[in-house]
Design a protein around this nucleic acid. Structure first.
Lengths: 234, 234, 234, 234
DNA sequence: CATGAATGAGACTTCATTCAT
DNA sequence: AATGAATGAAGTCTCATTCAT
């Protein structure tokens, strides 16, 4: 979808054919960056896969870094669009949450694990080890990227379905964190992931944690714990 | 006829001064790899920071890759040791969980976020984009690294304190996932993280999810009733 | 999931100017490898002699080894072509032999002694001490290289002009061996070699050995030897 | 055997233990140089095989080059000694020739192919590609090395058993050339070589070539006729 | 516009050699 | 006498990037 029109690329030629070129390069660039990561991806390989000259890549993009930025932006845009357009806003909060989780897992797995890694590895200002300046407009992208979930959680809180005593930020980590961890695991171990089952399981697991703690339940659990301790020390 | 003969291998010195050198290089290597990631880290920089010749680095380590491996191993060893030695095995499952989470957050933040990224980015077989062969003995390290948590969760399951209807693997993602996500967030945004508060909050948030849902309440109520009866008849 | 994807390979350009470059590099590469041998030849020197950047060399050849391989191949091709095209197939076996010897000596001496050494030193599978893998397609080159002589000898055998009681392999050594030895000697001592005279002499020397041993001659020689012995002991 | 006492090595310590050290290093140095060639041989490997420090090698030899020189010298000395001491000076020229050829083949094959290559590749002044200055006293070594054969051929010429119309130098090439060619072939192809059979065959093949051609037959017949006459009138 | 061609800068790595102990 | 330790110098190779055509 439309990126919020960043600074106009001086290099980019205009015209319909040019736009197709840009799209091609972005498409293949995404592949290569996803497969190899920022450092190991080469402009050479991108050009070769398109059967164009290396120099042509530089006709449309100021450099490797810029291309990578655009690749990541495009990818973000797609995810954001997929979620924003598909979100069943009429359904229950839980169902919407499941949609979000499922969509993420799906998009990540289709071609995204590499890009996910790319973003995680390269996409930050200068802390950690990354492409450095690569992440200039990143905070904003991150914000928009997590916006649907944040809004959903906020709505849930207002409806009393989501606990209000925990900062949203932490709740977000609670949702995205395990998701990414599962993805990494899938990538590392090479095991296939049943996306739908995983999404269902994960939400089932998270749901109780997102809800207001039932006071009676808490008290009872404390009681049980005390008994346990008492027994073991008797 | 000429003997075939294997390739000769340069071995690292073994004296007492040598050990110090190895430690120094590992220390600085850790810094540099953490700051820059595998690809951007250079042996030149490591040597410069130690004010030694680049060749000296290669006297003690066979190559960049091996050095990086050792750096990661050392780091894993530290975390594993810190957790294994400090874990309050007498305390409740929940307290032990809190210890594990807290220790992880702390060690990661002290100097570890970069290393965490390093491991995540480079430490996998060949899937995703990584240093490839770098992660040969990595599966084992990962296993030992997550072992304390896994054992704790298993004990919790046996004691009835942790739900048994979810595979341990998923529970592990539920714990490590948000932790890592929080760390990434801290790194990306550059915001400081109150480690102890975060650990407490996170565990508070996770705890309900780790416990049996639904019928738990029923069982607890039965338990309370039985206690009531027992007490009144005692 | 991320595609496995093969390693990308830089390909050498293919334009008309590129071909000239390739020829230039091969020409100078031949010089340098011939002068210095494989190990002592440096890509730096090759580049410098051409007044081009070292990187340019690697634009056209994957590496030092490949360049060297190509140099040797080209040289072989030249020799093979020179012999195949110039061989006076109508002339007598002896004249053809002289042509082969002469052509070899000439080509070797023009610029070839170094290359001869290069091939002898580096061009073998892994036996002896050599560049090892350098000689992959070498056996074939060797075969083609010695083919004209082999065929000539075979024809000579059929025509009854060359003795048939000795394996061709040994006859080949008998021809090439002294030739190479003479060349080495010329190189080592630095003495000039009168190529044509040497070729003539050598063939004159070899020719009797290549022919069927005349029985009477043999018997007479034995007689003379016996006389000699008898005289000296009398 | 005793080298004609070259310039005294400043570095070499004296004493019986030192002499043993020198012998050890020369022994292992010979192995390594033979296996790897000059460039690929490393002082590291030589030291490692002896389980001594690399620095120790430099205590006894001024450098890699000098060590290599000494290795080659020693080897020459051995061959020269073997031939000079074993040569059956009473036997016929042909038998002596066979002894020389056989001894060469044998010594070369035992451990010498590598060294042979070393000498051929590295042992020349500066022509060809070699260790350059490595061959300072080489011409002399070469002379002594080929001396037995040269003398034998000269004696043969005087006795009328070896043709006199060809310079000795060329005859030498005729003997050593095929020998070395056969050895190379054996090394390259890895095929085993039946040393004794090869020596016999080769000499059988060479012998006619070493003898006078053409009119020889005439002379021999005259000789036979004269003998006939002499006998009948005696 | 596309590209063929070239390259500067820099990476990792090897090894003979030195020197204080 | 022996060596542990260190290193200068050099080599091969990679890649993003530029520029004339």
């Amino acid at each position: 979808m439309t990126t919020p029109s960043a600074a106009p690329q001086r290099r980019s030629p205009a015209g319909p054919k040019a736009e197709q070129r840009v799209r091609d390069i972005l498409r293949v660039g995404r592949e290569v960056f996803a497969e190899r990561g920022y450092e190991r991806a080469t402009t050479t390989e991108i050009a070769q896969r398109l059967a164009i000259s290396e120099a042509t890549v530089f006709t449309y993009f100021r450099g490797k870094r810029e291309l990578c930025m655009r690749v990541i932006q495009d990818w973000y845009d797609e995810i954001i669009a997929a979620i924003e357009s598909g979100l069943p806003r009429q359904a229950s909060v839980r169902e919407q949450l499941e949609f979000i989780v499922l969509t993420h897992l799906r998009l990540f797995l289709i071609q995204g694990t590499g890009l996910c890694a790319l973003v995680l590895s390269e996409g930050r200002k200068d802390a950690g080890h990354g492409a450095g300046d690569l992440g200039e407009g990143f905070v904003e992208l991150q914000r928009r990227y997590t916006a649907p979930l944040m809004e959903l959680l906020a709505r849930g809180q207002q409806a009393g379905e989501v606990r209000q005593d925990i900062p949203l930020r932490l709740l977000r980590s609670l949702v995205f964190g395990p998701m990414e961890h599962m993805l990494w695991e899938a990538v590392i171990t090479g095991r296939q992931l049943d996306v739908e089952a995983s999404a269902r399981d994960l939400v089932a697991l998270l749901w109780p944690a997102l809800q207001a703690p039932d006071e009676e339940l808490q008290r009872l659990r404390r009681l049980r714990a005390q008994l346990h301790d008492a027994l073991s020390s008797a």
